[in-house]
């Protein structure tokens, strides 16, 4: 299993990687903005993507739209401070599979990753 973590904060990427390990995903790539995320998704196969929303150069929401427009069906979990209902609806409409708001506990994110992978398998 391989994941892509997308966040402009190095600190958060480290936290996300720890959550992936708890979800038994030991291999991952990192991206610091939406553009890097699109490039990574077009050139690699991932089992799950953890995507921030507010980033320089290109937002996570625009990256999700672009990844779906390119025909990629990889499960995407938004991990973001954008917690208003309207934002969640926007992300799901754009093609995100799941959503978790910061602040979060790494164990809770790990459970959400497992839940998302199970849904993707069925």
């Amino acid at each position: 299993m391989k994941a892509l973590v997308v966040d402009d904060s190095e600190t958060t990427r480290r936290i996300l990687v720890r959550s992936l390990v708890k979800a038994e995903i030991l291999s991952c790539d990192e991206a610091a903005d939406g553009r890097e995320a699109i490039t990574a998704c077009l050139n690699n196969e991932y089992d799950v993507v953890l995507m921030d929303w507010n980033m320089p150069n290109m937002s996570g929401l625009d990256a999700v739209k672009a990844i779906r427009s390119a025909g990629k069906q990889v499960p995407i979990i938004m991990v973001t401070t954008e917690s208003e209902k309207a934002r969640v609806v926007d992300a799901i409409k754009a093609g995100a599979n799941n959503y978790i708001c910061k602040p979060f506990q790494p164990d809770v994110l790990a459970a959400k990753i497992k839940e998302t992978l199970l849904k993707a398998d069925t």
Partner: peptide, 28 residues
């Protein structure tokens, strides 16, 4: 970077609590 992410999380969480039903979410 971790201090920057701290203010990002605190402000982001607070803006949802500040939300008004008839107004679009604040931009961060």
């Amino acid at each position: 970077d971790s201090v920057g992410e701290s203010v990002n999380i605190i402000a982001g969480s607070a803006k949802a609590k500040l939300g008004q039903a008839d107004a679009p979410p604040l931009d961060l």
